[in-house]
Write a protein that binds this DNA or RNA. Sequence first.
DNA 1: GGAAAAATGAGGGACGTACCTCAAAAACGC
DNA 2: GCGTTTTTGAGGTACGTCCCTCATTTTTCC
Lengths: 355, 355
Amino acid sequence: MRPTVNDIAREAGVSLATVDRVLNERPGVRDKTIRAVNDAIAKLGYVRDLAAANLARSRNYRMAVVLPDTESQFLQTLEAAMLDAGRVAATTRMEVRLHRFPAEDPHALATLLATLPGRDYAGVALMAPETPILRDAIRGLRVKGLPVVALVSDLPSTGRDHFSGIDNRAAGRTAGVLMGRYLGAGPGQVLVIGQSLLARDTIERRRGFDEVMQRDFPGVEALQTLESHGSSQTLRQIVAEMLTNAPRVRGIYAMCDGHRALTQTLADMGLSGKLTVICHELTPHARAALETGEISAVITQNLGHLARSTLRVLRAKADRVPLDESQEQIRIEIVIRENLPLAPDASPAAAETAA
Amino acid sequence: MRPTVNDIAREAGVSLATVDRVLNERPGVRDKTIRAVNDAIAKLGYVRDLAAANLARSRNYRMAVVLPDTESQFLQTLEAAMLDAGRVAATTRMEVRLHRFPAEDPHALATLLATLPGRDYAGVALMAPETPILRDAIRGLRVKGLPVVALVSDLPSTGRDHFSGIDNRAAGRTAGVLMGRYLGAGPGQVLVIGQSLLARDTIERRRGFDEVMQRDFPGVEALQTLESHGSSQTLRQIVAEMLTNAPRVRGIYAMCDGHRALTQTLADMGLSGKLTVICHELTPHARAALETGEISAVITQNLGHLARSTLRVLRAKADRVPLDESQEQIRIEIVIRENLPLAPDASPAAAETAA
DNA sequence: GGAAAAATGAGGGACGTACCTCAAAAACGC
DNA sequence: GCGTTTTTGAGGTACGTCCCTCATTTTTCC
């Protein structure tokens, strides 16, 4: 049916060994012979059976997934999605190992990364803030031949091989349009909440949001970003304070995780469903809040896709094979109550008994 | 490293042949032995190497994709996406063959389907209207062991194995919410356009749309569905007529393809960008119209995902293996100018040279 | 307890590729 | 044209699984 290396050898009038040398770019073949083999390949439309090749090579792909040890629902979901994707990918000689690092300690992260090449890894996926130390650490990995994929928040200055995530500025713009439309014509103020102004994704979202608000909804005033610093305590305080003092606030844009504290605060103040609340990441709590109407819309990325895409990219990079870019682009999804997907983002693998 | 069938045999204290019998559900093994083997599998965390398995089986998966011969941009994009997914899947012993049938001839379709089992197919993906003849034809396929997946428009009464597509009622609800929000508080009328009231997807979208409009936006009146019957000529006429006679129309909900005729008509009447236009399917023209503001929002499904998912499902069904449901759920995507994905839905495969 | 039936073991060939060795052939340098 | 180097051929083993056959053991049933 499909041509094999044997067919090529016959077609090119050379031996199997020579075809093999050409295919795997081993030395000791004349240019003329190489050309003959390649012609035969082209003529027969040969496509190497990657599965068989990997089997013969007994190639294994052990991938490191490195995440901050912050305990947010988002990170939990991401971790679950990565492990889940790893479980499925296990049938194709892939193994996913998770590592956590102290969120505020770039040195610890660098130390961790430095140990990876010695541990038979084929690639690294990493979610971390961009620091100079990290830049060097990533360069070190790449020198040793380990592809590095930035997860969720991009690390453009580090020379990572790929970024798995959404265009956060566009995500901010999307949030802006929805906010403007939902608020309608009238004037008003919008509260903007972020975890920290150091994270690249937060900055970009804010920038995109402002772009749209200024351009399309000049009547709406977006207030200065309130920083929660990852503490729900802080979040509650600042939100409560702002809402008491600023009666013209009609909408809230939450650029980060921490929906529970936010909706709780609103509930405490009797404001549930009275404001337009737009936030990011479809965590279990966000799903629930969408259903009750406490949150109007969620801008999100499909973490299941993100995880699978990341593993595919790492594998392609490890094999030095070109990617199918269109498949690896993560969409900016808009979720409202009406198009809420049924199953959670990352569900337990259907069945491990690969029967 | 990773456990193999041999490790399991040793661990369970049985021979390789018995492990094989258990793994492949061949008869002639006592329950007790089966349990022993499964225990060993669980204990060692064995995961079958699918690549090796398929290699050994030298199983080929030839899949038929059957589409109506209507020439819409949507169908072109779908076709391209399916072929593209097939090209990528070729590395995993999959082959995709396309078939078209005359859209208005259910008998021709039935005849076509009847020929498939004789042609070494492993599965069928089908987009077609639901007719009694089709029901019998699909039953015939399934009797012969061919899994059938309904594409885009569901065929629940035919006993198809799976439906690849979105929940069209929820999609209609989503369109409704956006329309209501975009129109704002004031009263108004909405024009609703569909290709044909016979197609299941159109009916469901309309129902979902009405549900939301009546519940959440009682001030807005959704007019009766105008049917274009696939003719852009007709579409132009009815839209022009309606818009001239109904000055209170502030929005248009187009439940089907045919964006070009619609935006053209609006442009001719000097109404570009003055109405809220929401339609389905992110075709190249819809992308352009989103960018210029002629269309406000598009409800769509990612045809690349749809195609890949369909092939995965067909393969899983052919292998009688459970699916990862969460991966196969097609999202209802909301696309506005701000979250327009960069690349087209289906791009040519990056490179076939699986180097 | 003996015959029949069921369960299990042992072994081998196949799938398509990688990678190794050793020998043979061809090309090269002078 | 001889020796040297380079190129090519032939053949084997391995990867992990499937699937087949035939022999042997165990169980079942009367």
